[in-house]
Amino acid sequence: MKYNLKNRTVIITGASSGIGRHMVREVSKRGANTIILARSTDKLARLKSEIEMQYDVNVEPFTLDLGDLHGVKETFEQINLNWPTIHVLINNAGFGIFDYFEQAKLEDMKRMFEVNVLGMMALTRMILPKMLQQGEGHIINIASIAGKLATPKSSVYSSTKSAVLGFSNGLRMELAGKGVKVTTVNPGPVKTNFFQMADPEGNYQANVARWMIEPEYVARKVVEAIGKNRREINLPFFMGAGARLYQVFPTLVEKALGRWINKK
């Protein structure tokens, strides 16, 4: 049974492109009003115009860099003041840079944790009291299969996504019985501009092209999970199965898949 999103309010971060952009479309089709956040003012403005021309919904854009905790606080104070009810928060914003650890830059490491982890936690902290007061809400955190199965050149990025998973699991237990659901979504490689920064040479994309999934598919699966008690969604299924196998037999999986996971 679909959760009724008509006239509900959904916050989506990283909304200007990729999975985030498609999620805005998916919830708008279902009648939800959205608060969209990203760093690109122009892209947000275009998305607002496109969505409001096609659907009878309201879209409110906010330009925000999640790595700026002061900006997160100011923005969400404004959101809390102007929107009495927030039904869904989708923490989608994030980025990665693939480097062997001995070559990784400290500023890149810091930036990934600031955006992927601390920024996500900060805005969740700003919205959570409202959801608890309402007695309902759904927090959906977009993590990654990489958070379960780290590979060479993604040790730092995988660490940030492992942190998202750990945070989500602990928060879910804290909120049990309080009406607020917590779901994590773990996609494998997705055909988005994520890899323009993560893999500028294109080697990884070329090697895993056959397994890459479409952002529309991920967005649809995320939106279909709204309102449901889904602990976790792994996309595609076989990568989720591989991650579970790795948790049970890590040495075996590293040996068996060593050649494949070194394709970055």
Rank of each mutant, 00 (worst) to 15 (best):
N203M: 05
K2P: 13
F95G: 13
F195K: 01
E136H: 15
P187Y: 11
N33T: 12
F62D: 00
L89V: 14
L149D: 11
V10E: 06
E102Q: 14
T183E: 06
T34I: 09
R125P: 00
S28L: 05
I127R: 03
R231A: 14
I145C: 03
R21A: 11
K228G: 02
T124K: 06
A198M: 03
M121V: 15
T151K: 01
M120W: 00
M173I: 13
A93W: 05
I86C: 06
E136C: 10
I139N: 10
H22M: 05
F101N: 07
I145H: 04
Y157T: 08
I79K: 07
P84N: 15
M173N: 14
R230D: 05
V117Q: 03
Q134D: 06
G240Q: 10
V208Y: 09
A45C: 04
Y55H: 13
Q78G: 03
K148A: 08
K181P: 00
E216M: 04
R111A: 09
A143I: 10
K153Y: 11
L149H: 10
E136D: 14
F238Y: 15
S159P: 02
I86N: 06
F76G: 05
D65T: 08
T9L: 01
F98K: 01
V164T: 12
P129C: 09
G137I: 07
K2M: 10
L123R: 05
V185L: 07
K105P: 00
A146N: 13
S144A: 06
R210C: 06
S154T: 13
A143N: 08
M1L: 05
S155F: 01
K130G: 11
L128H: 11
H70N: 15
N82K: 15
N4E: 12
M239I: 13
P129T: 12
A45I: 11
K178N: 08
T85P: 00
G170V: 08
G137C: 03
D68K: 01
E136Q: 14
T75R: 06
V190Q: 03
R230K: 14
K73Q: 15
V164C: 04
Q54C: 07
E26N: 03
K43T: 06
M1P: 06
S159L: 02
R21S: 05
G258R: 03
S40V: 07
H22L: 07
L128I: 12
V180R: 07
N141F: 01
V156G: 00
S28R: 02
V57I: 10
S158V: 04
Q205Y: 01
K73R: 13
K2D: 14
K153L: 07
N141M: 08
G188L: 08
